[in-house]
Amino acid sequence: MMNRPHYQQISDSIEAQIRSGALSVNSKLPSERQLSEAFSTTRVTLREALSRLEGKGLIYRANRRGWYITQGRIHYDPTQRLPFNEVITGQGRQPHTQVLAQQLAPAEPEVHQALGLAPLTPIHRVRRLRSVDGHPVLLEENHMNPLLFPGLENQDMSQSLTRLFEQQYQIRIATMALNMYPIALDSERAKALGMASGGAALFISRLSRDQHGRIIELDWEYWRHDALNIQMAV
């Protein structure tokens, strides 16, 4: 039997420490220099091992701060329009929402087309960073039809938009068209999620209609690839 490659031996060793609990959730791994010395290997080989662990969702890289042990994936059903806070607290985790931008302004052409609005029509746009247990996992960009949500720019956008639509505008999300695929993050979105440019993410696009069949919102979600476990009841 052939010996396992050195990078695999290293990744297996670190993985065993993680699964045994010796390396706790959210703890920081030693620096790459320290790990290279500990395993008597090169930085190139070590990074192969770390990339293998990252691919398994066991560690994540915080840009310029090193490698950390992941918290465990969130169980998420994108077909259920449940508020983020409810999804996270229901799994015994701590959610947090930071509003990065909130404006009434024109958007990308595909947004206008999806919402059925004329080019350059001002659209309600909200950009929010969602965290779990202090770790950013989701960058969300919401685009809403201004004709259906007058005064939305004055609302607290850190709350659940689903509940806001229902309580303030008597609008209920009835149906959704979903599109999901993996992407490499651009530098701006990667930075917001604490990742290096080109880092892997899952993109989810959700076009929502209300109880009257009107298109009300286009939601773009950028999830860290190591944050999510998709679960759907079919």
Rank of each mutant, 00 (worst) to 15 (best):
R73G: 05
S51Q: 10
R81V: 15
S160R: 13
A196L: 08
S160T: 07
M176N: 15
S36E: 06
L82S: 10
R47I: 07
F39C: 00
T79Y: 07
E217Q: 12
K191Y: 08
L161E: 03
L50F: 14
N154R: 13
D77C: 04
M176L: 14
L193R: 03
R224H: 02
T89N: 09
A177M: 11
Q17R: 13
P182G: 08
A49F: 08
L164F: 01
H225Y: 08
I59M: 05
H135I: 15
P119M: 03
R224V: 00
E110I: 13
L148D: 00
E166P: 00
Y76E: 14
M195W: 05
N142L: 14
I18L: 09
R47D: 07
A105P: 04
F149W: 05
F203Y: 14
H143R: 02
T121H: 04
H225P: 01
M195A: 07
W67S: 08
V132Q: 06
D12V: 03
E86D: 14
N63W: 11
L148V: 04
A16Q: 12
Q159P: 00
L100Q: 07
T89L: 15
S158K: 11
P95F: 12
S205C: 10
D226T: 01
K191M: 08
Q113L: 12
D156M: 00
F165S: 03
R33C: 09
M1Q: 04
I69V: 15
P95Y: 13
N85P: 07
P119A: 01
V234F: 15
R172Q: 12
I216H: 07
T45P: 08
V126P: 11
W67C: 06
R4P: 07
E221N: 13
P150H: 08
L147Q: 12
T121E: 00
E110D: 15
T175S: 14
H112I: 06
Q231A: 12
G213H: 10
F149A: 04
G199Q: 11
L152F: 15
R4Q: 13
N154W: 14
R189F: 09
A38C: 04
R130L: 12
L29E: 02
Q159Y: 05
G134W: 06
T70I: 02
G151V: 01
R19F: 05
P78N: 01
T70N: 04
W223E: 00
E217W: 08
E221M: 13
N63D: 09
E15H: 08
P122K: 04
L104R: 05
I230K: 02
Q8H: 10
T89A: 14
P109W: 10
A105T: 06
W223M: 04
Y68S: 01
L161I: 15
L35Q: 06
H112W: 10
V87S: 10
L129H: 05
Q98E: 15
S208G: 03
I171V: 15
I59C: 05
N85V: 14
Q98G: 02
R4N: 11
Q8E: 15
R64K: 12
I230Y: 05
P136N: 02
Q231G: 06
W223A: 02
Q98F: 05
E188T: 09
E86A: 11
Q231P: 00
Q113M: 09
T45K: 06
Q168D: 07
S13W: 11
P150R: 08
I88N: 09
A233C: 11
